[in-house]
């Protein structure tokens, strides 16, 4: 975001005709945008850059409880990285994280699109009702939501087992959803997607309201079906919004932690490890802070790569206009 602002400032400056002014005044004028950027840069440096620097430094140290008590790590070069790259648990976890992220993002965007399209079709009071429902889901603190889901899938008294048994789907009495990682992940992914839909759906709906109805009408007159109109008119117009919500969803889902950690009662088995959980367990449960940092650095690097891709997309979109 910060990289866009100087460019914007420059384009403002460029729109004035080039007239020579005294040097002092020119310097003062030129320094104003940078001065305005200072407070934000200072905040970003304090809350992001320094912790990131510290994280990277820690990842090159042996830093356990012994070192923690003395506040002094032991430099060991790239040994932490060598260890994680030779650890099959790390690769399994990375693969699982990517797969979970992909499934969550696809499901989130798919359902959110359907809901947004539905919202556009509804009468205003039903739309209000549905929006209120979405907002409630969005407003539920994640910890509370996870507790509620835990109750619902409780193996003994959960409403999920009760309902499925009553509906005759099978005998779900004492069915433990977390015993099998596949069904456990089914629950966790549903929970993540459920929590992620409102933001995406409401954002997409906001975008839909900006799609001019004349365009759609014109398409209909030309004989385009609803799917064709959606694919060739709505979708291209909403592309900037899709780029943003997809990139956000990837960032959120890639670092998912709470849902996994709390629904497994803070004792996840390795089948439930995602990158964030793995880094957390390594750092804070086993007190291998250096090793945990190395895992976190890899995670940050992957996220940075994803971000670069999407920022480029955003810039490209800007150029077209």
């Amino acid at each position: 975001m910060s990289s866009r602002s100087p460019a914007a400032a420059a384009s403002v400056a460029a729109s004035f005709p080039p007239r020579r002014r005294p040097l002092g005044r020119r310097l003062r004028r030129a320094s104003v945008p940078y001065g305005l950027l200072l407070p934000a840069s200072a905040v970003i440096a304090a809350v992001l850059a320094y912790p990131l620097y510290y994280l990277v430094r820690l990842s090159f140290q042996h830093y356990g409880l012994f070192q923690l008590v003395r506040h002094k790590g032991e430099a060991i070069g790239t040994a932490n990285y060598a260890q994680i790259f030779h650890d099959s648990l790390f690769w399994h976890t990375l693969l699982r994280t990517v797969a979970v992220t992909a499934v969550c993002v696809v499901l989130t965007v798919l359902f959110a699109t359907l809901i947004a399209l539905l919202l556009a079709e509804l009468s205003s009071w039903v739309r209000l009702l549905l929006t209120a429902g979405l907002i409630f889901v969005w407003a539920t603190p994640v910890v509370v939501a996870i507790s509620i889901w835990s109750w619902m899938i409780d193996f003994e008294f959960g409403v999920a087992n009760w309902t499925l048994t009553k509906l005759g789907v099978g005998n779900f009495n004492h069915h433990d959803w977390l015993a099998n990682p596949w069904s456990g992940w089914g629950v966790i992914i549903s929970l993540i997607v459920w929590g992620a839909i409102p933001f995406v759906a409401i954002t997409l709906f906001a975008g839909l309201t900006q799609v001019s109805s004349e365009l759609l009408e014109a398409a209909a007159i030309d004989g385009a079906g609803r799917w064709r109109a959606f694919r060739d008119i709505t979708l291209p117009l909403l592309k900037p919004i899709y780029v943003i919500v997809i990139s956000l969803s990837i960032i959120w889902d890639f670092q998912v932690f709470n849902q996994v950690w709390l629904i497994t009662n803070t004792t996840p088995s390795p089948d439930y490890y995602v990158m964030a959980v793995y880094a957390y367990v390594t750092s804070f449960k086993i007190s291998e802070y250096g090793l945990g940092s190395a895992i976190a650095v890899v995670m940050v690097a992957i996220m940075a790569l994803i971000s670069v891709f999407y920022i480029r997309q955003m810039v490209k979109l800007g150029d077209v206009e």
Binding site: M1, V47, L48, P51, F199, T203, A206, G207, Q210, L237, L238, P240, I241, V243, I244, V245, L248, I251, W252, Q255, M314, L317, G318, E321
Partner: peptide
């Protein structure tokens, strides 16, 4: 284009979330 404004608002919202999780 309005959709770009919406995208920008969404991005701003997202960055604030990233910052707050990083500083926990």
């Amino acid at each position: 284009m309005k959709s770009r404004i919406i995208a920008a608002v969404a991005l701003a919202a997202a960055l604030s979330v990233v910052v707050s999780t990083a500083s926990g």
